[in-house]
Simulated scan of single mutants.
Amino acid sequence: MSTSAKPFDDKFGSVSKNYKNFRPTYSDELFSIIDDFCAKDKRDLAIDIGCGSGQATVRLSEYFKKVIGYEPSEGQIQHAEPAKNVEYKVSTAEKIDLPNESVDLITVAQAAHWFNLPVFYDETKRLLKNDGSLIIWSYGLMNITNNDAAQKIHQNHYYKTIGNQYWAPERKYIDDEYRDIKPTYENTTRKTISLPKKMSINDFVGYYSSWSGYANYLKKGNPDVLPSIKQTLLDAYNTTDEDSKIIDCYFPVYMILSKKN
């Protein structure tokens, strides 16, 4: 078994601005679960690994004295959201530049499926203090709840236009609800929550533009289909208003909460 990081293939650097603008923001419910799970007397340092442009990193700073976001994509880091007690570093997940037993919480949001997981789990055990927490989560494919025609357009784009030929194989972890992400901690629990969201048609199409699978689809020389998808969504909602938040949808969020004993 490999004991090193996977060679880094930056799938998001080219779409980092779209990633920041159009990806969902995490709910108060999710951070309440994190707050309840973590020891109240261990709030000095949290690290967010695979932090992207900081969607979760900044929120963690409300609960911890210091937060460091680690991200291998320089493009993502360049668009990361600043905060006074947050620092960002370019780094892989499998080798973090911190001392043994120095971290109270490690989070991974929408990124663990890219890691060399056995090596990563060993690194988290090195980094965490006793009673420290490792919390991993991922959101699955969104579902549109207020328009059946729009939901069919959405599913067709995901499963047929992009499909297995353009999604990286690691995407299967998400489609399988992170059941095969199994941290090597005895104290591990799982939760599934729902992340509701209202989106405009412009934002919805912008979300598509942030997909690594769509970036790969374009890289292979395929035509940009987002303008035509945008028009079919406008037709499905019988509107010309592309900026009104008329799409009701939700993301299922799969959480894995582990404690170092």
Rank of each mutant, 00 (worst) to 15 (best):
P7L: 14
M199D: 12
I136A: 09
E62R: 13
D235I: 04
I34D: 05
R23Q: 15
E101V: 04
Y173H: 09
D41C: 02
V103R: 00
D241T: 10
L117C: 11
D122L: 04
Y88V: 12
Y63G: 03
D104L: 09
Y158R: 11
F31A: 07
E81S: 11
N238M: 08
D241L: 09
T232K: 15
P252T: 12
I33L: 14
Y19W: 07
K66F: 11
L195S: 07
D243A: 04
K95M: 14
Y254C: 08
S133Y: 05
G52A: 06
L128T: 01
R171P: 06
I162A: 02
R126S: 05
D235Y: 01
L30V: 04
S61K: 02
Y207D: 13
L30A: 08
Q231K: 14
D248F: 02
Y173N: 14
P72D: 15
Q55L: 14
M142V: 09
P118Q: 12
D48T: 05
G75W: 06
A56R: 07
L141T: 06
K17T: 11
C38P: 03
I136Y: 09
N202Y: 07
F115W: 01
E177C: 12
Y63V: 01
W114N: 00
S16A: 15
W167G: 01
L141A: 07
K160N: 13
E94A: 11
I34H: 05
D235S: 06
T124K: 03
K6V: 10
F115R: 06
K245A: 09
T192E: 10
G75M: 06
I33Q: 06
E186I: 10
K89V: 10
G213M: 06
G140L: 06
Q76W: 03
M1N: 15
I34P: 13
Y139L: 14
L257P: 00
I246G: 06
D248T: 02
T240G: 00
Y178D: 08
S4E: 10
I193E: 01
P118H: 11
S2C: 12
